[in-house]
Design a protein around this nucleic acid. Structure first.
Length: 178
DNA sequence: AAACGCTTCAACCGCTGGATA
DNA sequence: CTATCCAGCGGTTGAAGCGTT
């Protein structure tokens, strides 16, 4: 017996959010802060499940979000980080605080995948995901995590090169967003 | 003008890991 | 230790918009 789905209650609204719903959600979060998502539908009167509220806030309503028009700089970072980390969009997004993981994922799937395919022609047989690739060569998760840390360090250096950032001063700027 | 196919992206679904009782 | 709950994550879907015929 698994955990029951959170959204199977009757009377839960789905689909696009209306401006009114957005206002209810934003004003609630302005007063109470994000978190305790379970309480949000009851306290706001929104007929949405907690998951839907959290998603709407983090991907659309949260302040400081930049939408559309990815810069060359951002694009390069995404390409480098994806090559290193695989499809770990939340981890990638932590390096681009103005972008959401959903946005980066969408941009990758709709723009960058195609772009890279064109660039590389038909390269075959290379893996996409770090740990799943390592698993096949019998690497333990602990070993893989350590390797990942090293890789991240190397990637930061590589990013500095790719983005023409001064290596000695700006490595720390690439720390994930808290 | 309208029918069709393609692209984009907001939102959903199912799963996982961490926290807690 | 086990069961349950919740937040968060990544894959996927489908409606809307856009371009082409």
């Amino acid at each position: 017996m698994g955990r029951p789905p959170c959204c199977d209650k009757t009377g839960v609204k789905k689909g696009p959010w209306t401006p009114e719903e957005d206002i209810f959600l934003v004003s609630y979060i302005q007063e109470n802060g994000p978190g305790n998502w379970r309480a949000v539908p009851t306290n706001t009167g929104l007929l949405r499940c907690s998951k839907s509220c959290r998603l709407r806030w983090t991907n659309y309503l949260r302040p400081g979000i930049k939408r559309g028009n990815f810069t060359d700089h951002e694009e390069k970072m995404i390409i480098h980080l994806q090559a290193l980390l695989g499809n770990r969009w939340a981890a990638i997004a932590s390096y681009l605080p103005q972008r959401t993981d959903n946005d980066i994922k969408n941009y990758w799937n709709t723009h960058l995948k195609k772009k890279l395919k064109k660039l590389h022609g038909h390269e075959h047989g290379h893996s996409q995901d770090g740990f799943s690739a390592s698993q096949s060569s019998s690497v333990s998760k602990g070993q893989w995590e350590r390797r990942l840390q090293t890789d991240i360090h190397m990637a930061k250096k590589a990013l500095c090169d790719a983005l023409s950032i001064d290596k000695s001063t700006n490595l720390n700027d690439l720390k994930p967003y808290p």
